[in-house]
């Protein structure tokens, strides 16, 4: 499947998370002609966040498609393409606009393999920037990943660093089933990491233990990994040893890594931007309660957004979990 435009040499670059997304897309399109990308403003404009910059120039309009402004159409068109053996990567400009595509995602993408008993399947990726903290307008800042985690047949993958974004996106594109790939836009350009552009995927369906510790397990995903890691630093200064886990794929959930960690530390603090009620944190907490009950030294704590509409940006920081909130929750479960 090597395309004539393939860049095969690997190079190492310091890149941001959004640049790592672009790098992964470029690599995979160069090495697999069945990969196509589609979405609003993704071709000539290169995407409103620049995630698809340069792809149209390299691969042409047949594989890099600006669609009409219709998210339901984007979701469903990608399904049709996927049943034909293409590997579409469809971009929703913001997660807040994905909802008109929900029927296609829930009623077709997630179940095409099941309802045809394997005759057809959907090797596609739906990418969407999500989360708050960038002073964006209304409808641009929500974290509704739980909606997708509830749907059987979908994978919900959330990177939290440039290296993981690169490797997880490659894995998502190569995965033979539909993947919702949610990109935490607050950390799109927060840090740079050295990423080797070598086409190496990293596994899905697995948590990543970012830091080992013995007193408490801090569990998060997406942009709030930033505050969670900072909280671990603060706790360390206070002689509290925190293990930090990036869930990476929120569905299907790697319960084994979570349970091993909590069995060791006896305490868990779950951090997510999304509102609390019915959030993925509830599933993580229930899994810990079911699987590590005897090892728990304190109830599981959650640090989350509030059960309300995401405030407009003047108040968004008041909504988002802060480092202090995480430190306080960790100290509380340790005191018990």
């Amino acid at each position: 499947m090597n395309s004539s435009t393939a860049r095969t040499e690997s190079e190492t670059r310091d890149v941001t998370l959004v640049e790592a997304v672009n790098m992964a897309l470029q690599w995979e399109m160069a090495h697999d002609d069945s990969v196509v990308v589609l979405g609003e403003d993704i071709a000539t404009n290169g995407g409103v966040f620049r995630a698809t910059a340069g792809l149209k120039e390299q691969f042409g309009f047949k594989r890099v498609m600006d669609t009409p402004l219709a998210e339901n159409l984007i979701a469903g068109t990608a399904i049709g393409m996927a049943t034909q053996g293409l590997k579409p990567v469809a971009e929703f400009q913001f997660m807040g606009f994905i909802y008109s595509g929900m029927e296609q995602i829930i009623s077709h993408a997630s179940r095409m393999r099941n309802r045809t008993r394997g005759r057809l399947h959907c090797p596609l990726v739906y990418r969407a920037p999500f989360g708050g903290g960038i002073h964006a307008p209304e409808h641009h800042s929500e974290s509704t990943e739980a909606l997708f985690a509830h749907i059987p047949g979908l994978r919900v993958v959330i990177p939290s660093s440039p290296q993981r974004a690169y490797g997880q996106l490659l894995a998502a594109i190569r995965n033979p089933d539909p993947v919702i790939f949610l990109e935490p836009k607050r950390i799109y350009r927060a840090v740079t990491q050295s990423v080797e552009n070598n086409g190496e995927a990293i596994p899905l369906d697995t948590c990543f233990t970012l830091r080992e510790g013995s007193d408490v397990t801090l569990i998060s995903w997406g942009a709030s990994m930033l505050e969670t890691l900072q909280a671990a630093d603060v706790l360390s200064e206070q002689s509290v040893s925190a293990e930090v886990i990036d869930v990476g794929t929120i569905s299907p959930l790697d319960r084994e890594t979570l349970l091993c960690s909590v069995s060791k530390t006896g305490r868990a603090v779950i951090v997510h931007e999304a509102c609390r009620n019915g959030g993925v944190g509830a599933e993580v907490a229930a899994s810990i309660a079911e699987g590590a009950y005897l090892e728990l030294k304190a109830p599981v704590a959650r640090v989350t957004g509030y059960d309300t509409v995401m405030p407009y940006y003047r108040n968004e920081q008041a909504y988002l979990p802060q480092v202090d909130d995480i430190v306080e929750a960790a100290r509380r479960v340790i005191a018990l």
Partner: peptide, 14 residues
């Protein structure tokens, strides 16, 4: 909903 799939299949052919 099949209309959107149909154009996706048509796009793949094109």
């Amino acid at each position: 909903t099949q209309c959107c799939h149909a154009v996706g299949v048509g796009a793949a052919m094109r």
